[in-house]
Design a protein around this nucleic acid. Structure first.
Lengths: 211, 211
DNA sequence: AGCCCACAGTGGTCAGACCAGTTTAATTTC
DNA sequence: GAAATTAAACTGGTCTGACCACTGTGGGCT
């Protein structure tokens, strides 16, 4: 049966329910970028809600850049793997001059989290390749940790980290120079899967006090 | 004069224009979190557009977490410092299960980070007050960890966590019930300043395998 | 003073009406 | 029969008016 929005004790707003339904629909019907969604009127009928509510949901999703609508044609799923939507929504960025300390702290802890994830998830040969690169290639600290965060295989952390990195670089903070051997040492710690060793080496690399 | 939406060569959709107007309004009228926006009907009149278009704009902004709506009262600006993160999270709405895993993973690790920060920073009497509350009051898991993240005293983590929490709740995931004694045990671990104990208790509370 | 209730205001939702495009199918024309 | 034309059916975009549910307020009552 077609799931109706009207569930018992429905506290949440209709349009939010519709957003959920759409997500459900996309997931279960295996819709891919480029595919067309049902028309607004059909969704309205199928979900048993007014068309305006459907539109509220669709407009919200559209502003997120997840769908695209063409008058006369329909509503289509957008290819949002590419992060083009950041542009659109960047209008909302109100520069947050909140304490640099928070940003710093957050960035470091996320890097640590990613290291931890790598210990859990990464394959050994991935790490060996990484180490080889770390010893030979020419890279910046950002390059190095981009690789780390990527290896952690968590897209969300990747996104957050990228933003923090950009913000970080926009402040003229002196960059602590780290030697290749230190970078390699961290990878060795990862390979050894010794969590406390990883933490120790990372802290040392970041010149963080034990705090 | 009041800027109308009807500008010459208006290709963009009305609701997008309204979103812009609202942003303009917030910026130039110096509206702060907690302040009330004009009512939907008033906006409709002032901008010379239909109320439904105003609603489409407001709902879209609401889904971004930038405003909050209370029936019978009005629409309010939300405290969204660090809202850039809204964008990145938004890229995840409607995504595959892997992303859900990422959100879950990220939320848990951030909670763990915050616990770690508390060990470093929190005063003992703060924790004792917290424990008293945890034993007596009636609260949800979100309430509890909101307190945790707040105690960590890192506004950025707070913002990220709030977004993840909201997203999390928007998925209909079964919530694991945790007893008060477990919540209290975690606080005890914090008080003892024993990091590995904190981690152990947290993992147990979240029913996470050692992974 | 304090209580209660009606009223105005606000968001939530729906139905219906147009308009402006696009697609599709039927019809005409060659 | 094939191509061009036209009409109908659909789709999104927008507006209006109507209810409902809820909140805050102020006036009147005790």
């Amino acid at each position: 049966m077609i799931p109706h929005v009207n569930s018992p004790q429905n506290n949440t707003k209709v349009y939010v329910e519709i957003v959920k339904q759409l997500r459900f629909m996309i997931e279960h019907n295996g819709l891919n970028p480029g595919d067309r969604l049902p028309s607004e009127r059909e969704l309205s009928e199928r979900l048993g809600v007014g068309r305006s509510s459907v539109r509220e949901a669709l407009r919200a999703i559209e502003l997120l850049g997840l769908i695209e609508t063409r008058r006369g044609e329909g509503t289509f799923i957008r290819d949002f793997r590419g992060n083009q939507l950041v542009q659109l929504l960047s209008t909302f960025i109100l520069q947050d001059k909140k304490s640099i300390r928070d940003v710093k702290e957050t960035k470091f802890l996320i890097e640590l989290d990613c290291l931890w994830l790598i210990v859990q998830k990464a394959e050994k040969d991935q790490l060996l390749t990484f180490k080889k690169w770390a010893l030979e290639a020419d890279y910046t600290d950002d390059d190095y940790f981009l690789e780390v965060v990527t290896l952690a295989d968590n897209h969300l952390f990747l996104r957050i980290w990228m933003i923090l990195k950009d913000y970080f670089n926009s402040l003229d903070l002196k960059i602590i120079k780290v030697s290749k051997s230190e970078y390699a040492e961290l990878i060795d710690a990862l390979i050894s899967k010794n969590e406390s060793e990883v933490i120790r080496v990372y802290r040392n690399l970041r010149k963080l006090s034990k705090s």
